[in-house]
């Protein structure tokens, strides 16, 4: 069971009030891109044993999307942050570094 804090409405609630939306920070391969790049955008996903960034939706609450950084092995949540970002913000990265010094970093 995960406890997540929605950065949009400030509510801390258990997982059953949210819905998971897959990997965060995907970059779309647009028109003119090679087929394999577009295929990668559609289908290729990370499946890390450790630090992971995900999209979540507060589906039974305010209905808004946000991002969460968590550990897939321990279910530890490092933090949540707004969805309007293209990479994890500095404070989230610092929180991960503090707890996972050997983390290879984002991308």
């Amino acid at each position: 069971m995960l406890l997540l804090t929605c950065p949009n409405c400030g509510v801390t609630a258990e997982e059953s009030e949210f819905h998971q939306g897959g990997e965060a920070h995907l970059r779309r391969a647009g028109p003119g891109s090679p087929d394999d790049a577009f295929e990668g955008y559609l289908f290729t996903r990370r499946n890390p044993h450790g630090v992971h960034f995900e999209r979540w939706r507060h589906v039974f609450g305010c209905g808004k999307w946000f991002h969460a950084a968590r550990c897939t092995a321990t279910l530890e949540v490092f933090g949540t942050y707004p969805a309007q970002t293209t990479e994890p913000p500095a404070d989230i990265v610092a929180a991960i570094r503090a707890k996972r010094p050997d983390w290879e970093g984002f991308r």
Partner: peptide, 10 residues
Amino acid sequence: VRRTRAAQAA
């Protein structure tokens, strides 16, 4: 005000 679920309903 708290938006949540009551069992399976919003």
